[in-house]
């Protein structure tokens, strides 16, 4: 316990204090254009929860979160499985390659995608050259671009989380299944996939939470058309200057995270069979 104290203290200062500040701020009131008045009032929560557009934004956020999560997991799963199982000497290098994008900020990567996916970008040029399209596809400044960029940005997280969760996947078990008559597909369906589920859930939760709190990519790639809770918080906090409302939204988003964490733990226990 004594050893934990500095850590807990650091956690408290760096995490708990802003959180308490946030919760307190959400109870203040905004008067007129943006005048902040100290109060203890649920008004911001009432405003947020009774605003039809906010519900639309929340629904949009969840939908985007689920879509990006599913796509990211589908694309990352084979890579993670390969990396977790390979005995190649290149494993270290491949691993580094898979997570190298984490070394650059998502701002940089989003701008990269902005260029790649623009009307004259590599993707549209390639499609035109191959004769697949005649008119450029609109891949930026809309939700398509946001999804593409988010999936790429989330992949390293998904891969890392899944590899960490693939502890029960073992070559021996697959060999045992093979010796008992399971071909590759059945071995995957009956053995490898069920055993990899904890990793899949960890990865999915991670991607989902990161996606619904993602602010930069929807902002930069969305062309002002993609409204999610995080961009809404940003607008309220820095443009409309309604701090209580921004705080209330943040608190609600945190609660949403909490709900998903609980659901995740339930699901995880079910999969682990404990």
């Amino acid at each position: 316990m004594a050893l934990l104290t500095p850590g807990l203290l650091a956690l408290g200062v760096s995490f708990l204090v802003p959180l308490v500040w946030l919760a307190r701020m959400s109870l203040n009131r905004t008067v007129g254009p943006a005048e902040l008045q100290p109060a203890v009032s649920p008004q911001s929560y009432i405003d947020v929860l009774t605003d039809g557009f906010m519900w639309k934004v929340a629904w949009h956020t969840l939908w985007l979160g689920l879509l990006v999560t599913v796509l990211t997991i589908v694309v990352s799963y084979p890579i993670a499985l390969f990396l977790a199982r390979t005995r190649s000497r290149l494993r270290g290098l491949l691993m580094a390659l898979a997570i190298a994008p984490l070394l650059t900020s998502s701002v940089v990567r989003t701008f990269g995608w902005l260029i790649l996916l623009s009307d004259d970008g590599v993707v549209n040029s390639a499609l035109r050259t191959l004769g697949i399209t005649s008119e450029p596809l609109v891949l930026t400044n809309n939700v398509t671009g946001v999804v593409i960029a988010l999936v790429e940005i989330m992949m390293p997280y998904a891969i890392l989380a899944m590899i960490a969760g693939f502890g029960r996947v073992s070559k021996n078990l697959e060999e045992a299944a093979g010796s008992l008559g399971a071909g590759r597909l059945r071995c995957f369906v009956r053995i490898t996939f069920p055993l990899s589920l904890p990793g899949v859930f960890t990865g999915a939760l991670m991607v989902f939470v990161l996606t619904i709190s993602a602010f930069i990519t929807p902002r930069l790639m969305g062309g002002g058309r993609v409204f999610v809770i995080a961009t809404e918080i940003y607008d309220q906090a820095t443009t409309t200057l309604d701090w209580p409302r921004a705080s209330a939204l943040s608190v609600l988003l945190l609660l949403l995270f909490g709900v998903f964490l609980v659901l995740y733990q339930r699901l995880f226990r079910m999969v682990e069979g404990k």
Partner: peptide, 14 residues
């Protein structure tokens, strides 16, 4: 059609 037994048992944990 060969029966295989491993040092690590290799029973399916799920």
């Amino acid at each position: 059609d060969m029966g295989l037994v491993f040092q690590s048992y290799a029973l399916f944990p799920h």
